[in-house]
Amino acid sequence: MKRLERHVEKTLDHMQSDPEERAELREELLAHLKSLKEEFLAQGHSEKKAEQKAVEEFGGPKLVGNGLQESMYPYQRGLLFVIGLGTILFGILLHFVFIMNAEEPGTDWLLVQMALGTVVSLAAFNVSWIGRFYWSINVLIYLTAGWNGFNYFVVIRFRAEQSIPLLLYIAVLVVISFLFMVRNASFFTNRGDPSKKKRRIKTASHIINLLLGLAISAAALFVTWAGLAFSEYSWKLFLPLTAIVGWLIFYKFQMRFIGKKPVAAIFTGLLFVCVVIAVPMVPIVFG
């Protein structure tokens, strides 16, 4: 029996399912393997041989695990690879454009670009483990998309023949990242919900909340960039970035709330945006 359980565990290692879903799958796969074993026992094979043949008939853990991953979470691993490798490739392209323009290549910039791309690619390699941390992986992709989006301010100052293709590249990367986050959040809240209508409302709520998050991020990055570009350096210039940190923390609870009350979650998302806009006004209004 241990052989069958081991085989099921190896198969589950290739999937991103959370503990609850994993337990259900474990039971289902084990039942299937046991059934196969019973068939081979009935054909007159020994217990050991029946287990071996059941495992062979069932299929290798990698093949079955990857197949199940793709059928239950289609394209998620592929999208992660596209975002990760795309982020690395963008860093390399930017590096060569700097060299072509006879500018000092930004080695720190390249390091951040490659580090983010590598971490996302590692998440794709290890989607069976990291995939079950839905919020964490969305935070990783959100930060990667934000950083790639921030590159707009670097690229816009290049010549048109360099900046236009690079801007298109950034746009595609950000759109793919957004797509991944919506799908990832939807997988988190929609599993086990038989109602198609409810699933759609939840997905719509995720889209609106993530768009609000991106809007906060874009505004915070713009204000930070404008401060760095047009005024004297100070740690205070980075204060707008706290809005991004705040939203990410808020989003951890919001993700679950969307699963329970998707319509109300749209309003709480809007309320958070209002708070983010209102907080900087306090010192202005009250002197």
């Binding site: 390399i92 590096h95 700097f98 060299i99 006879a102 500018e103 000092e104 290549p105 080695t107 390249l110």
Partner: peptide, 10 residues
Amino acid sequence: VLVGFGESAT
């Protein structure tokens, strides 16, 4: 490799 190439090229 990229950092080394960048430094030597520029």
